[in-house]
């Protein structure tokens, strides 16, 4: 039993080390190699544009339900007009970045792992190497760069839509006063919350792109291998996003004083 646990921990640590090395190689490539504009543009379209509907729906309904639930509790203590302030801070620094990253991990991370996994099992990645092309330059860097560029924008969009939806629900359905709601929201939402949300989005983007690319490029043979890599990419990305969010919140709150 101890042997199995040790084996698992060592395997997990090895995976973590390999993903870190992949990140270092990608950073090195980003600095020293020519930018693949075509690959980057396609990935920006695939990750940024094609994720719009998922991100908008997630942001809007999260904002609305958060507004409704907060209002129901605050109404009991006559704090109705603080509802949108809570929604704004929560969406800006926590729910916006985390939920957007989780939705993108489900859509984009799975696609990355499946595509790279299929390329691996059909020897396309080996073919790239024989054509004097480093797989990190051609496959990982455009995906990583596009995710790091797109996810903060998607997160901002999700937060804005969430707050707008919450404002609409709060002021029309729940009867919160427009002026007080707006005033309190601006009063309690600090620039630090926006900065925190943006930093988190960048970190989550790097995490999900690296884990998904790593899982795809190192998948086992056959359809089962590709399937497992895809599942692991989504599960590991999601868990890492949730765990790192907690530590980022503690660290950034202390750093930014949010």
């Amino acid at each position: 039993m101890n042997g199995l646990a040790t084996h698992r921990v060592l395997g997990w640590l090895e995976g973590l080390g390999r993903i870190t090395l992949l990140g270092v190689e990608a950073a090195r490539s980003l600095i020293s190699q020519r930018v693949d504009w075509r690959g980057l543009t396609y990935q920006l379209y695939f990750i940024g544009v094609k994720s719009q509907s998922v991100v908008l729906i997630t942001g809007a309904f999260t904002g609305m339900v958060l507004c409704a639930q907060t209002y129901f509790q605050f109404h009991k203590v006559k704090m109705d007009t603080a509802t949108l302030a809570v929604v704004s801070v929560a969406m800006g620094s926590e729910l916006g970045p985390v939920l957007t990253a989780l939705m993108v991990a489900g859509r984009v991370g799975a696609a990355m792992a499946a595509e790279l996994g299929s390329m691996r099992v059909t020897e396309q990645i080996d073919a790239l190497r024989t054509l004097a092309t480093h797989p990190v330059d051609y496959l990982v860097v455009p995906r990583l760069s596009a995710t790091v560029l797109a996810l903060p924008l998607l997160t901002a969009e999700s937060i804005a839509v969430g707050i707008l939806a919450a404002y609409t629900v709060g002021t029309t359905l729940l009867g919160i006063d427009h002026a007080y709601a707006w005033h309190n929201m601006l009063k309690y939402t600090q620039p630090q919350h926006v900065v925190m949300g943006t930093i988190k989005a960048v970190v989550f983007a790097a995490v999900l792109a690296l884990i998904s690319c790593y899982k795809g490029m190192n998948c086992r043979e056959g359809a089962e291998g590709v399937g497992r890599a895809t599942t692991e990419a989504v599960v590991y990305s999601s868990i890492t996003i949730l765990i790192s969010n907690f530590f980022l919140t503690l660290f950034l709150t202390r750093l930014l004083g949010a």
Partner: peptide, 9 residues
């Protein structure tokens, strides 16, 4: 190099 399954992209 020519691969067994051609390995075209």
């Amino acid at each position: 190099m020519l691969f067994q399954g051609a390995a075209l992209f």
